[in-house]
């Protein structure tokens, strides 16, 4: 793929900071009959050029999601900060399973710590959040995709609008 065919990133640095700050992440895919499925993710990484987003899911929980992605690559990912309700959704059409990197387990742990801290605003116990996100590191796989669209999904009048710039290049 030549450099010129690469689409301009739909995300700016502010969006990336939000997505990787330990917010709640959930992923949807669909099968050949357009029946959707969904799974909770355990963290996110964004490439330096902001064109590739990688989220992490655990098998066997995500088995059906991964089957769907392998067949058609259609993916939707929602990122939401419980304490502020700030929510964005990304769409991709080229999702594929990717190899893990050596420092990924640290990323998972940082993700859980940050999300637990945010959910503590609602009085959620750390033990509850850790149980909700419990996983075996060995069973986590990465799913990478190129977001082709991004939407604001924070509840309110602007929900559903294309994601506005955060003003951070």
């Amino acid at each position: 793929m030549s450099q010129s065919s690469q689409p301009a990133p739909v995300l700016d640095a502010g969006h990336v900071a939000f997505m990787t700050s330990g917010v709640s992440i959930n992923v949807a895919a669909r099968d050949a009959h357009n029946i959707p499925t969904l799974t909770r993710a355990l963290g996110c990484r964004v490439s330096a050029d902001r064109c590739t987003v990688t989220i992490f899911v655990a098998v066997p929980d995500a088995a059906r999601l991964l089957d769907n992605l392998r067949i058609n690559g259609a993916i939707a990912v929602v990122f939401s900060q419980p304490s502020t309700h700030h929510t964005i959704q990304l769409k991709g059409a080229d999702a594929r399973v990717v190899a893990r990197e050596p420092d990924d387990p640290a990323l998972f742990e940082n993700f859980i710590v940050a999300l637990a801290a945010d959910l503590a605003h609602y009085g959620w116990m750390d033990s509850y959040v850790r149980t909700m996100l419990s996983h075996d590191d060995e069973n986590i796989v990465g799913v990478a995709f190129t977001p082709y669209a991004a939407f604001n999904q924070t509840p309110g009048p602007a929900a559903g609008a294309p994601l506005a710039s955060t003003g951070t290049p």
Binding site: N26, V27, A28, A29, R30, N34, I35, P36, T37, L38, N72, A74, I75, A76, V77, V78, S80, T87, Q89, K91, Q153, P155
Partner: peptide, 16 residues
Amino acid sequence: GLIATCSADGVPNVSY
């Protein structure tokens, strides 16, 4: 809760 839906042309969506 979370709800996943899919458009007629096969684009999934996920929402609270």
